[in-house]
Amino acid sequence: MDTNQKYLVGIYEDEDEVLHAVSEVRGKGVKIEEVYTPFPIHGLDVALGHPRTRIPKAAFLFGLTGLTCALSLISYTMVFDWPMIIGGKDAFALPDWIPVSFEGTVLFTAFGMVFTFLASNGLWPGKEPRLFDLRGTDDKFIMAVNLGSNRLSENEIESVLKESGAIEVNVKQF
């Protein structure tokens, strides 16, 4: 993480306002680094221009891995390593394997996806969060603008944020 960066932090009071403000502020040529909210707001990532998440694809691949692992283990043990004769039936008893294959698929999907989620967001036990405002996990909606990556001056950005409905604009240095 870069050190000593200066940010302007706009505080908003309502989720509709902040969603509206994001388009407005970006429309005026201000680059927003990120918006922090106490709960998910639909369309906010799109408004901010974030690329669509690839988590569903990852989840699908983990599920496929789980299914393959489960079926490989079962067919190896039941057909190749130690086939058992049960009622004279075929050792390759696919219908009987559906429950365990299904559970394997679900298990791999859930854990694989959640660990991917944690890794892609850089979340781990004991990580020090980079918080612009403590109220961002309570009832306020926080817009962070990195002054270093913007061409407009601090005063200009401040007035853009205020016009878009920010109740406060603070300066934060990291």
Partner: peptide, 9 residues
């Protein structure tokens, strides 16, 4: 932190 990117994921 509750960033928009995290929430979307």
């Amino acid at each position: 932190t509750g960033s928009a990117k995290t929430w979307a994921r």
